[in-house]
Design a binder for these strands. Structure first.
Lengths: 214, 214
DNA sequence: TCCAAATATGAACGTTCGTCAAGTTTGAGT
DNA sequence: ACTCAAACTTGACGAACGTTCATATTTGGA
């Protein structure tokens, strides 16, 4: 009678959880500092206090580890955005705030900037881990007549790639940072809003995000 | 009295031009087949009939060579689009046709699909090599009152990242190919067009592109 | 206490990029 | 026609890194 349920987590399970979390933390720290390519598997293993081969018991490849790191970052930022926007009444405003926050975080936070190459993986992590919130907002705003974007998944995909790509361009100095509002406006246009309505939505006063824990 | 002008091209200059072109052709062929990472510098050199070290006399690194390949592809496609659209009277229609063509080429042409990872480099090459045409169209269409996108550079940047990113998603099977029209519509919305006008522009009958020479 | 299965370890492997010292070609000057 | 310095080519080599694998260790039930 083996229950899959509580099972107060034996030593193996506990060690495995610790190792996996330590590896992601370690990889995130080193990749944030040196970029994904600049981080070596050996250094990641050492910082997580495991042998070099052990990493491959948890992740099939360096790429898979990088994906895990990016997803963890996306999930974490999603939750921080939710904390601030759960008092908003207009789902369109939640969406606009989310877009802007990711853009600003990606361009201002040193730890994100290093990860901007590999933008295709980043955009994908963003689509999947922030999607549940963003797509919800797009659909609610469409239902309320604020947006015209019932095909929320498609719009969100476009938005992800554009957001990450533009963050890259801002970091590279090809776009001026003050133009973030213009970018938000154009991304809002994709939802079916006209230019004036998008501008209005993008320039409303905004609350501040809580700093990241840990 | 050294003139910088005609100078009937000595053997050195001729060999250099031949080598550079052979290297780009070789790299394009191999990278199209195996992807950028899958192509090794040695194989590229052999196919171009030069020594392994010679590649580095023409390109500082593998990345620089990859950029040269991508730019060559973008320039070449730009010219083919120009050939077909130079009879169009509406610059908005030229822009719409260009966007759609890149999307379709990137998702249908096997040789492009292999290059879709590294999307950040691809989007950048696209921004620079197709930009002169696309930005011209955006500005003309804005001046004619068809678009509201005087900040053409920004809109074009967004469009590049979105186009390449979405091509990647289509190739990966995350978006259905028939939705290309929807993508074009949303990208046109970014120019200030409303949903109806964008849909109209995206669904007009289109001429066919000439197949690539060579 | 013992044992088989699961997991950890780090030395070793194979691959690849980029460098470099030595060799070859080029074309201007004599 | 000959000389020579500059420019270019070459392929063997160094270094770095991701991944594998034989061996050692740990685990938890019998």
């Amino acid at each position: 009678m083996t229950v899959t349920q509580p099972e107060p987590e034996g030593r193996v399970a506990r060690r495995q959880r610790r190792n996996r979390e330590a590896l992601i933390r370690s990889a995130r720290a080193i990749m944030s500092e040196k970029g994904i390519d600049g981080a070596t598997m050996l250094e990641i293993a050492e910082r997580a206090d495991v042998g070099a081969g052990t990493v491959y018991n948890y992740f099939k490849s360096k790429d898979e580890l990088a994906v895990a790191v990016l997803e963890e970052m996306m999930s974490s930022l999603s939750l921080r955005i939710e904390q601030v926007t759960d008092t908003f009444e207009d789902p369109a405003q939640v969406y606009a705030f989310g877009i802007r926050t990711v853009l600003e975080t990606a361009t201002r936070d040193i730890r994100w900037r290093q990860l901007l190459n590999r933008s295709e993986v980043l955009a994908d992590a963003m689509y999947r881990r922030m999607g549940p919130y963003a797509i919800r907002d797009l659909k609610q705003a469409s239902a309320a007549g604020r947006f015209q974007a019932e095909d929320a998944e498609l719009v969100w995909r476009l938005a992800c790639h554009a957001i990450i790509g533009v963050s890259l361009s801002i970091t590279a100095g090809e776009i001026e940072e003050p133009r973030i509002t213009d970018v938000v406006v154009r991304l809002l246009c994709m939802t079916g809003l006209d230019l004036a309505a998008a501008t209005d939505l993008a320039t409303r006063p905004r609350p501040e995000l809580q700093p990241e824990a840990g």
